[in-house]
Amino acid sequence: MNVLFLCTGNSCRSILAEATFNHLAPEGWQAMSAGSKPTGQVHPRSLALLEREGIPTEGFFSKSWDNLPVTPDIVITVCGNAAGETCPAYLGPALRAHWGVDDPAKAAGTEEEINAAFTQAYRTLREGIETLLALPLDDLRQDPSALKAKLDYISILKFKQPHTK
């Protein structure tokens, strides 16, 4: 199963989610990330945070959803509605979910406060990913409607988001 973590810039949240998912996922599950308007670079704080967490960072770059290597089975948008962002809508046959996380790249304040925003985004995304990966994935792979229901449940439980269509 191919999971796409999607946001606008593909520099922070979607990169954090892709790296974390691939670090934790079982064989047969793979994540990628992209943006509808990629910034062209991965935020250095995202890479530093992943390295502190022991997650490999080699090969990450900000990329467009126009250049995906495979068609995703699942698309999870990670834009934060509270930040007033408009999250891109992927136009494909994939199951969709929204895991809204505020953009740490827009955080202001002291170094400590900005780093805390990145850490919070990472922890929130990791909790959602761990919740997903704790499910009976082999069974859910065979039942798209049950998988969609679980994705919606995680959206509400971990991200306080209503389900998507």
Rank of each mutant, 00 (worst) to 15 (best):
D73A: 13
W65V: 09
R141I: 00
A31P: 11
Q142K: 14
L24D: 05
I129A: 07
S155E: 14
A83I: 01
E127C: 08
W29P: 04
E113K: 12
S36V: 02
Q161V: 03
P56S: 14
I55N: 07
G40V: 07
Y153K: 13
V42H: 03
K148Q: 15
Q120A: 15
T164A: 12
F60I: 02
C87S: 14
D138V: 02
D73F: 02
A31C: 10
S11V: 00
S33R: 04
V42D: 08
F5G: 06
N10K: 03
W65K: 13
T110L: 09
F118K: 05
S62Q: 04
Y90T: 02
L49A: 05
N67L: 12
A116N: 06
P69E: 14
I129N: 02
A116K: 05
G28H: 04
D103V: 08
T77N: 13
E130V: 04
C87D: 06
K165A: 13
L95W: 12
K37Y: 04
I55T: 05
A17S: 14
E85L: 10
I55W: 06
L125P: 03
V101F: 07
A108V: 15
L91P: 00
F60W: 03
I154Y: 05
L157H: 12
E53Q: 15
H43I: 01
S62I: 08
I74T: 10
T124A: 12
I15M: 12
I156Q: 15
P144D: 08
S36G: 08
K150Y: 10
L95I: 12
R123H: 13
L6D: 09
G28Y: 09
P144M: 11
K160L: 13
K158P: 00
N22T: 06
P38K: 04
L132V: 01
P93R: 14
G84W: 08
